[in-house]
Design a protein around this nucleic acid. Structure first.
Lengths: 331, 331
DNA sequence: TATCGCGCTGTAACCGGTTACAATTTTATT
DNA sequence: AATAAAATTGTAACCGGTTACAGCGCGATA
């Protein structure tokens, strides 16, 4: 494999001149540069990036911790990350962690061992111990409570409030909630928005209508099964993800209920399938790709030592009303 | 940041001894090792992996070229890649290429510039020029015709043959096909399986029932629209992806057709949503995670210089019959 | 006691670039 | 033509590990 010394020999110049011809061509006379470029060509020389990175102590790699890539919402966030990183000359080390703390700590070591310059965490977990100073990090989507780094998110509480209010305005009085994973601040925020909307309307939250889920279609399906059999069945369900909403809709239909005739279902995320199922889902649209773009932009600012990086960014969400929600059935 | 020389000084030994205490502890006396480990602890020393990689000329990084991560089938493949790579001590550089040749060539340079040891290509495109020797590479899912490297795939032709035959056995005589992207060998293989099944049953393929698509729900929806208005509407449709099948089903339902009462729809891939829509999709199940696992296993064999790496692996598929296909309506 | 072998440790070269600094050549100025 | 200034090029240190090779200390053997 040819290296810079071989090229220098071929061109009859020093290694410094070769390096400069490639990195800072304006420092080299046109004649010399031509000689070097020719030698580079003849030798089929490509600088060894490992050497460059080692020398410069900058890897231009970013670690991305994602709980599950199989969720299309995260897939879109990753697309945004990837695209922005590429434009800025960074590569993405993708780490699918299944939400396991230990795996995340493991991957976070890619930064401490200098295989990456920074890390984007899409889950509410700090993979670094609280005592050592946090390396360049950005937390997006599912936010830590006291994040030691910039964060990028939406107003989950407000969005769920709007979604719930939409159902209340349609006349629903008994509204169930299929939640995300229990420990997540994101779940907590969405739950809070739901409850605030109920309270604002003078409705009482029935603990029996609070079902656990984990964002997958299957968990939505299972949760919905409890509602089908419920003695005093709700007329509407708010789901904390579209995937769960799709599972829930399927369960209701199999049980012979009409959506939204008998029961309205609302989702969260606005994944692509949300408009391609029957009925198309009412949901909260989140700018998934933009999460990724902004997270990378902030992270690079931190890496490059910019001061006063925006500590928290709230991106806009949008209530998208489709046909899975309708007026409450007369009682 | 502390380095090996600081640790050596702290422990009162040479750098070689520090290196050996960590890499090959059996070469060092227990007493010295203890001293070194203590110094490592006190210095908060973590070996700089860039230096290690540079020195060893092995990055333990794998590049993965994926046309689109937003497709849940690829997301599952990537999960499999990730998991296997992690176990083998490799990191994954994920590259979402949108199927753009130039972008793929660009990312492939990560290998030539030694930022990665090998590459997994999930699309039928060789990002390296034919003349230079191909670096460690494995081609999975969508296979190149004359791949210069090991491949991992399923029997697309056979699978589509089975799927089509299933419809024929249900009495369908006019069967449409919503295809994948035109240039792909995968599309070609699936088309061939479809046509062979028709021929074997003595049916003639109607070119008007061959609709283009690109694997997205939207393209399935659009293609289905042509069928709805067709003068001599088919009674069944084979789709080359579940996503398109879901789009097609939605289109038919919106047009007032019953699935499968008026028209049967079959998909391909068996994504998670396939069983959570109405009606649940008949489809071909592919071992997506296993694609990733096997691809990584083969790639590492190539990287580590193993001889006689299996040149082609065909993984098993399975016809999954659900409720989106049924007997052809009486005419 | 001299010699050998073994286990452990140290010295220094090396991987392939970048860059501070010195040396040399070219250009400008008088 | 002499000199100063600017532009170009070269030398060698450096990044932080790994490892070939050499050296040392100690017990075993003759």
């Amino acid at each position: 494999m040819s290296n810079i010394r071989k090229v220098a020999e071929l061109a009859g110049v020093s290694v410094a001149t070769v390096s400069r011809s490639l990195a800072t061509p304006e420092m080299v006379s046109p004649k010399t540069r031509a000689k070097v470029l020719d030698a580079v060509e003849r030798a089929g020389y490509r600088p060894n990036q490992m050497a460059v990175k080692f020398r410069s102590q900058r890897t231009h790699n970013l670690v991305v911790l994602v709980p599950t890539i199989a969720n299309t919402f995260y897939a879109r966030v990753i697309s945004g990350i990837q695209e922005t990183a590429r434009k800025a000359g960074y590569s993405v080390l993708l780490c699918n962690t299944q939400g396991q703390d230990e795996v995340e700590r493991d991957y976070a070591r890619l930064v401490s061992s200098r295989q990456a310059d920074g890390i984007i965490q899409l889950r509410a977990f700090n993979p670094f111990s609280d005592d050592d100073p946090t390396p360049p990090m950005v937390n997006a989507c599912e936010l830590l409570d006291n994040a030691p780094c910039p964060t990028v998110g939406i107003d989950n509480r407000g969005a769920t409030y709007e979604l719930t209010r939409h159902l209340i305005e349609l006349g629903h009085r008994r509204i169930a909630m299929i939640q995300g994973p229990g420990q997540s601040p994101l779940t907590r925020e969405r739950n809070a928005g739901y409850q605030e909307a109920l309270e604002a309307a003078g409705l009482e939250a029935d603990p029996g209508l609070f079902l656990p889920g984990n964002f997958t279609p299957r968990s939505g399906f299972e949760a919905a099964r409890h509602l089908v059999d419920h003695a005093n069945r709700p007329t509407a369900v708010v789901c904390e993800s579209d995937e769960m909403a799709i599972g829930a809709v399927q369960c209701f239909k199999e049980a012979g209920l009409r959506v939204p005739g008998d029961i309205s279902v609302a989702g969260f995320d606005d994944i692509e399938f949300a408009s391609f199922i029957d009925p198309p889902l009412t949901t909260i649209s989140q700018p998934a790709e933009r999460f990724g773009q902004e997270a990378v932009a902030r992270l690079i600012e931190v890496i490059e030592g910019k001061r006063n990086v925006t500590p928290h960014q709230t991106l806009p969400h949008r209530l998208v009303i489709r046909r899975s929600t309708a007026a409450a059935p007369p009682r």
